[in-house]
C-alpha cells in the first residue's frame, strides 16, 4: 500500500512537471517574435502630382491589443491637414491599412501621438501600414532637420508583449547624392583656418544670408571650391551668415593652441542632396 502511494505521488509530480513545461513552452510560442525584429518606422513616398506622403509602417509585430506611437517631425517638415480640414492630418485608407480599432490622436508641437485600442481580446495582427500623413517642406528645410522618426509609446505601451523592443528608425527622403566635407571648410582645401572665415565673411557682406538647402545646386557661384553647400555652415544651423565666420575663427584659434573646438568645426560630415 505504501509502495502504491509512493508511486501515485511520484506520478503526480512527474505529470505536473511535464504539464508545467508544456504550458511554459506554449506561452513562449505565443509571444515569440516571428522572423526578424519588430519595428515601426516612417516611409516617405513621392506621389504623382508632387505630394509627399509619410506612411507609418509596423513590421514583424505579434498580435497586440493596444499601444501608442509618437511621430516626431523635424523642423524641416510640416504635416498638412487632411481632406476634412483636420489639422492633426491623420489619414487612413480602409482598403489597405491595418484595423486600428478605436484610437485617439493628439498634437504635440509638430509631432503627433496616436493611441489605439482593440476591444478584441486576441488583438489584431499589426503588420503593414497603420496610417499616413501628407507632409511638405518648411521654409527652413535642410538635410539636418528633414527627419521623421516614429517610436512606440512609453513603457507598457504594448499590451501583453511589453518586452518587445521596438527599434527607432529615422527615415530621410530619397537621396540623390552625398558629399564628405569638413565642417567650416569654406575653401575646400581640407584645412580649417582664417582663410575659411574670410571666405564666409566676404560672401556674407551686407548681411547676406544663404540658406544651405536653397543653394545646394548653385553654391559654387558663392563658394567655388567648397565641397558642398553645407561646408561653410560652421554652426550647422542651416544658413550661412557672419556667425559661421565667428565659429570658424573660434575653432581655428582653439586648434592653434591644441584645444578642442567647442563647435563641430573641423569634423568630417556628410552632406546629402535629396530629391
Amino acid at each position: 500500500m505504501k509502495k502504491t502511494c509512493k508511486k501515485i505521488i511520484s506520478m503526480i509530480v512527474s505529470v505536473y512537471i511535464v504539464l508545467m513545461l508544456f504550458v511554459t513552452c506554449s506561452f513562449y510560442r505565443a509571444y515569440a517574435i516571428p522572423g526578424s525584429d519588430p519595428r515601426i518606422y516612417v516611409d516617405i513616398v513621392y506621389e504623382n502630382g508632387g505630394t509627399i506622403r509619410a506612411d507609418v509602417i509596423v513590421e514583424n509585430m505579434p498580435n497586440i491589443r493596444t499601444g501608442a506611437f509618437y511621430l516626431n517631425v523635424g523642423a524641416g517638415w510640416t504635416i498638412l491637414p487632411n481632406n476634412h480640414g483636420n489639422t492633426k492630418g491623420l489619414r487612413i485608407d480602409s482598403d489597405d491599412t491595418i484595423n486600428l480599432g478605436q484610437y485617439s490622436i493628439a498634437e504635440n508641437g509638430t509631432g503627433r501621438f496616436l493611441v489605439f485600442l482593440n476591444t478584441d481580446d486576441n488583438g489584431y495582427d499589426y503588420n503593414g501600414r497603420l496610417c499616413y500623413f501628407h507632409i511638405e517642406r518648411t521654409s527652413i528645410n535642410n538635410p539636418m532637420n528633414s527627419t521623421l522618426n516614429c517610436t512606440f509609446g512609453d513603457s507598457g505601451g504594448l499590451y501583453g508583449v511589453n518586452f518587445v523592443d521596438i527599434t527607432n528608425q529615422a527615415v530621410n527622403p530619397v537621396m540623390l547624392s552625398s558629399y564628405e566635407y569638413l565642417i567650416g571648410d569654406a575653401d575646400g582645401n581640407g584645412i580649417i583656418d582664417a582663410r575659411d572665415a574670410t571666405k564666409i565673411l566676404t560672401a556674407t557682406t551686407n548681411l547676406t544670408i544663404y540658406n544651405v538647402y536653397s543653394i545646394r545646386n548653385s553654391y559654387t557661384s558663392i563658394f567655388p571650391d567648397a565641397a558642398c553647400a553645407a561646408a561653410p555652415d560652421g554652426n550647422e544651423d542651416g544658413v550661412i551668415d557672419s556667425s559661421d565666420a565667428t565659429v570658424v575663427m573660434q575653432a581655428y584659434m582653439a586648434m592653434s593652441v591644441g584645444n578642442t573646438p567647442s563647435s563641430k568645426v573641423g569634423q568630417i560630415a556628410i552632406y546629402e542632396v535629396f530629391q
Binding site: 501608442a68 478605436q102 484610437y103 485617439s104 490622436i105 493628439a106 498634437e107 504635440n108 509631432g111 493611441v115
Partner: peptide
Amino acid sequence: IFLIIQRYSEIATGN
C-alpha cells in the same frame, strides 16, 4: 475608457 486614452495622450504630449 476614452477618458483614460485622452489622459494618456495628455500625459504623453503635455497638451
